[in-house]
């Protein structure tokens, strides 16, 4: 996604994110296709040649959608969910903890709905490579279709494989591994084999404390160092205008001062748990050094 650079005009077979008041929807622009809505139909052919960020009116002119350029962040908000997905606050921290830069090679398991995969591919492009694994054949197929549609097929290899049993089929190559599995401790012993000589990073995402405890043991036993654990949450805020009236301090005046202040307040409810991020480093000595 966006790996081939930013385009200003919508072309055939492009992925476009449509945004309205209710949320986001992603489409692939095809001739003869259309998007149905309660207040009219949006024809894909109408979008061709329009600038990204344009307002698209439905055929009846009653409603509109904004046609946006795809980014991994918008994709995360609009992708079809096949599993639970990681959202941008965690994705961004994972990217930093894995120390990803253009050119990094990464292993990821499982692929799931490909939310993180798109963000990783964006960051490691154009010379890095992402090897992503899932044991669910259909999910792999769907993810592969999406990577191809988004022009990422050269950057991403998505394979069907049970990494808990077999490990990754990449050796001495990657410098970052990300695990989002029910039992990461089963894969951790396989990880050092895949790392290239030198300094590498691993991050494991688990929702439960017990998973972290078992992963901790596995990391220590496999020779990982600098083990750290974080929890990151994003607090949604809203700005509300509050009316403040002065308290009456004496009997003499009846008139009370009134003013409005803008105040930043958190929403009543927020996602208060997503998962724990366990991160560690690994130093692989070159075979010739030993």
């Amino acid at each position: 996604m966006n790996s081939k650079g930013y385009k200003s005009k919508i072309k055939l077979n492009d992925t476009v994110i449509l945004s309205d008041q209710d949320g986001l929807q992603s489409i692939t622009v095809q001739p003869g296709e259309s998007v149905q809505s309660r207040n009219g139909v949006f024809l894909h052919s109408d979008m061709l040649g329009k600038e990204y960020g344009s307002k698209m009116w439905s055929n009846k002119g009653k409603t509109y959608r904004w046609a946006l350029h795809p980014t991994p962040e918008l994709w995360t908000l609009s992708l079809p969910h096949r599993t639970q997905i990681l959202y941008t606050p965690n994705i961004s921290l994972i990217t930093s903890l894995l120390e990803l830069i253009p050119g990094t090679s990464v292993c990821e398991s499982g692929t799931g709905s490909g939310s993180l995969s798109h963000a990783i591919a964006r960051t490691i492009a154009p010379t890095g490579h992402l090897y992503t694994y899932d044991f669910h054949a259909e999910r792999v197929q769907q993810a592969n279709d999406e990577f191809t549609a988004h022009g990422l097929s050269e950057l991403v290899t998505c394979q069907c494989r049970d990494v808990c049993r077999e490990g990754f089929n990449v050796e001495n190559y990657v410098t970052a591994i990300f695990l989002d599995l029910p039992n990461p401790w089963e894969v951790i012993p396989h990880c050092p084999k895949s790392f290239s000589p030198g300094y590498s990073r691993i991050v494991s995402f688990s929702p439960c404390v017990e998973q972290i405890q078992k992963s901790c043991i596995a990391l220590r036993e496999s020779g990982f160092i600098d083990i750290q654990m974080h929890e990151c949450l994003s607090q949604q805020l809203q700005v509300s205008s509050c009316r403040i009236t002065e308290a009456r301090l004496d009997e003499s005046t009846d008139k009370r001062e009134e003013r409005h202040v803008l105040s930043v307040v958190p929403r009543l409810c927020m996602p208060s748990h997503t998962g724990y991020l366990l991160s560690a480093s690994y130093i692989k000595c070159n075979v010739h050094d030993l």
Partner: peptide, 19 residues
């Protein structure tokens, strides 16, 4: 797509038993 957030980060002592 306006969104106002603040981030919250908590570090833990990762250990097998005393987490």
């Amino acid at each position: 797509l306006k969104n106002l957030t603040t981030s919250w980060l908590r570090a833990y002592q990762p250990a097998e038993s005393k987490l």
